[in-house]
């Protein structure tokens, strides 16, 4: 991502970080909640902010970094506008989630190891069970669940997202 943009993003939200810290009473036991809210704000966890959070909570930066890299929800790289989570839980796996994932990645042209599209529009992740196993295989886009999916349907969902439509 280009530097200037990042700067702007940071400037907008630095204030927010303090508000978030304030809300959580500067309590290190709320670190996970704090990071969740920060990620909500920035869509990822920038290094500077994490260092700042460590200072404010009076814990070491390594501790914050350790927590941030432990939980799957956190990302230290910018994420796309839409987050597509493909379930690869047991129920979805036995019903063909791998094919769905492959179709999505192909459609978005993601190379091996890539999670986010170059235009920062989509991030594709796999998760273990969204809890809608009865609809397996399932995907969730920005917390909205779709299922059962197949290669065809998933393309339909993506097209609609690209157009900016609400999909049903």
């Amino acid at each position: 991502m280009e530097k200037p943009e990042q700067g702007v993003a940071l400037s907008r939200s630095f204030e927010k970080v303090n508000a978030i810290l304030e809300k959580h009473g500067y309590n290190p036991s709320n670190l996970i909640g704090i990071l969740q809210e920060i990620q909500e704000e920035y869509r990822y966890l920038p290094e500077e902010i994490l260092t700042y959070v460590a200072t404010a909570l009076r814990v070491s930066p390594a501790y914050v970094y350790g927590v941030a890299t432990f939980y799957a929800q956190f990302s230290l790289k910018p994420k796309g506008k839409h987050i597509i989570r493909v379930c690869d839980g047991t129920a979805c796996h036995v019903k063909g989630s791998e094919k769905v994932l492959k179709a999505i990645r192909e459609y978005l042209g993601l190379r091996d190891g890539e999670q986010t599209t170059g235009d920062l529009l989509f991030t594709v992740e796999t998760v273990a069970c969204i809890g809608a196993c009865a609809l397996a295989p399932v995907i969730a886009v920005d917390n909205r669940v779709y299922g059962p999916m197949d290669e065809e349907k998933v393309r339909h969902v993506l097209e609609a997202l690209e157009r900016g439509d609400e999909v049903s």
Binding site: S29, L31, G33
Partner: peptide, 21 residues
């Protein structure tokens, strides 16, 4: 308390650690 994506946090002592941040 909301988890942040870690299966092991269902285990009691891990869950406690997670609540403690």
């Amino acid at each position: 308390k909301e988890g942040a994506g870690a299966f092991v946090c269902g285990e009691e002592t891990a869950l406690i650690a997670s609540i403690e941040g």
